[in-house]
Structure formats: C-alpha cells, structure tokens
Design a protein around this nucleic acid. Structure first.
Length: 306
RNA sequence: GGGCAGGCGCCAAAGUAGGAGAGUUGGGGCGGACUGUAAAUCCGUUGGCUAAGCCUUAGGGGGUUCGAUUCCCUCCCUGCCCA
C-alpha cells in the first residue's frame, strides 16, 4: 500500500497551523510540527505556537517537546519524526507535517546522512580556536584537512566550517562525500503544499502579529523564562522575538526599538524561508490572502490529493 | 509677513574653504547559499543602458567658472524663531 503524507510549509504567518488543523480534523490525521522553535516549552507567544485550544483540536507532535536548555538537531528530529510516521501509517492516520523550518522538512522528506554525530568536546575545542584565532583559524584547519569542503564555504560562515571539521574528524571523510552519497531514502509519497502571501501583505501581517505578541505578554513571557533560571545564551533563546526582548530587558535598547527589530528580523526570516523553499520544485504553491477560506482550501487539498 | 537653518539616489545623514560623486556611513529593500545550533550561520546587490565601457544625477530654473554638490540670483519645500 502506498504511504502518503502531507507537508504544509511556507514562510511564517501564512496560516500553516490553521490549515493543518483543519485538514487533520477532516481526515483524522495527526500533525507533526516541523518547527525548530515550537519544540521548546515556555516559548509560546514569541514562536506563535498553536494555542491550547488549537492543540486540543488535533493531535500535535513535537510541540513542547523540550526544555529550553536541551540540545536538539535535525538528525534527532529526523529519527523521532520517522518513528511517528511509522506509527501513523499502520493506523491509517494521515501524517501532516506542518512547519517552516526548511531543513527539518528536508530531513523528514529526504532523510539526512547520519554517519557523523556531533562531538561536543571537539566543538568546544573548535570554539576555543575561533576565540583565539578567529574564523580564519578555523578555516585554515579545514583547508588542511578537507580542502574540497573548504573550497565550498567561506571562512565567515563558521558554523558550517565547524560542522565540516567535525565530520572530518569523526569519519576521516569529507562532508561533501556524505552529501553526494546520500540519496533520499524515504518510501513515502509526500505531497508538499506551500502557502505564500504577496510580500507586501505578508509584511503587514507580520507587523500586526508582532504588535499582538507584545500586547499579549511577550515581555512577561521572556522575563519569566529568564527568572526560571534559563540562560539567555541558550540556543533556544537565540530566536527572533526573544533575543530582542532580552536586550531590551537588559537595558541595551528601548522597548520601541526591540519591537522594531523583531518586526524587521521576522521579515528577514520570512524572506530566507522563501529563498529556501523556492528551490524545492516539489512544492505546490497556494497563494492565500486575508480573504482566503481555509475550510475550502482544506477541502480542496484533501479531495485533490487524498 | 520677517529672520535663521536645511533640502544628495528607497529613507536618514556625513562631507566638500570649487578640482577623482553613480560616490561615503547607517537603515530599509531585493537576490542568493546552506544536511547535525537552521527563527541559526553566512554572501551578494540596491540610477539607467547596447554593461571591463557609456549616459543621466545633489529640490526646480538661471548665472559665475577651464571646472559647481560646493559660490551668486531666483522660485519651491521642510524645520525652528519672531510677528
């Protein structure tokens, strides 16, 4: 029997959550959130996490999955989400992968090479090198070990340089070798739906949403996360909406400036998401706007593909 | 109505005691890269064209000059002060 799953993606603020829930309700499906920030507990308002009510309407996986200080990565997401997928198929439930983290979507739908895990000790060592010798120091190291990979990256992009070094140290092989070798291994037919909104309107919606986040207590949320003892340096808090409020709370910028920055950074984020998703030729794009009837859209998608 | 200070590319400014301005700084925008931190990390671009070159350009118009963004005249606009 063919195994089919639905993917709903697209930039932030386009209505993915709403559409996913409507489709889940009509099909008895379950939602697999592919959102690298909604994974974290307590980051609710700033990540536009589905509300309690919405969560009650449909079964969601990977929402409130982690504490803010837990390490996570795409690979873990790939493993855990495949497990969920494998449980859903025998039950005849439609998996609805919904979210805007492009790399996570890619991992679920195409898999990810898993021959090289992370090596925290080595990363620490690399961080030290970066502190002492800068990006160039790291880059030189990569050039020495894996010149082909170095060729493909810039010294400034130290995170990618670091990962390439890590892969090389762990396996003795170039990260490029794994990329080339890896082939999509999923025997699942993913129908990918992408939601878009005309740029100008999208920006307006983003700005409105940010204002609403502030009104509904984003600042309190951040304060209470920090006062619970979570450190501001955590990866989970290096997130649009959180880092800006943190620097407001620390007196570095005004409240107005923080709001402005959240808006700008969210706009930029949405743009990066578009850049990522545009490359994916399998995505079937649905343009929406404020008039869009999501019930109808849900029906449409179901009758067309499922 | 009078006085003063301003008006430069999408926006906000810096500068020029006349001489390398399609150029400076910041912002915003746009495009792109990205398989283990991805809401992360990073790159490019932002007057036009027949594109290693050429053209147009500093509020509008005029003038002085070999040469004007810079000096002069005039008009318009903005801000502040006085009526």
């Amino acid at each position: 029997m063919e195994r089919r799953a639905l993917v709903i993606t697209g930039p932030t603020c386009t209505g993915k959550t709403e559409l996913a829930i409507k489709i889940a309700n009509r099909t008895g499906g379950e939602i697999i959130s592919a959102d690298s920030r909604q994974l974290y507990r307590y980051l609710d308002i700033g990540t536009a996490k589905p509300s309690r009510e919405e969560l009650r309407k449909a079964k969601h996986h990977f929402i409130d999955h982690l504490n803010p200080d837990e390490d996570y990565n795409v690979s873990r997401f790939e493993n855990e989400s495949s497990e969920v997928l494998n449980n859903l198929f025998p039950e005849g439930r439609l998996p609805i992968i919904a979210g805007g983290s492009g790399l996570y979507i890619k991992a679920v739908t195409e898999g990810i090479f898993d021959e090289a895990d992370t090596d925290n000790e080595y990363r620490e060592y690399l961080h030290k090198i970066r502190t002492n010798q800068g990006n160039e120091g790291l880059y030189e190291l990569l050039k020495a070990g894996d010149p082909a990979a170095a060729e493909k990256m810039l010294p400034q992009n130290w995170k990618r340089v670091m990962r390439a070094l890590e892969v090389f140290k762990l396996t003795g092989k170039s990260i490029l070798w794994f990329h080339e070798k890896h082939k999509p291994e999923k025997e699942i037919n993913f129908v990918k739906i992408g939601l878009t909104i005309e740029r100008e309107l999208l920006y307006k919606l983003i700005e409105n949403r940010v204002d609403k986040m502030i009104e509904t207590g984003l600042i309190n949320e951040v304060e209470s996360i920090l006062s619970s003892g979570w450190k501001k340096e955590l990866n989970s808090l290096n997130t649009v909406g959180y880092k800006e409020i943190i620097s407001f709370l620390e007196g570095e910028i005004s409240r107005e400036r923080a709001v402005e920055l959240i808006k700008r950074n969210t706009r930029r984020f949405a743009k990066r998401q578009m850049t990522w998703f545009r490359r994916d030729e399998k995505i079937i794009w649905k343009e929406v706007d404020q008039m869009t009837d999501f019930d109808k859209l849900a029906e449409e998608i179901i009758s067309e593909y499922f």
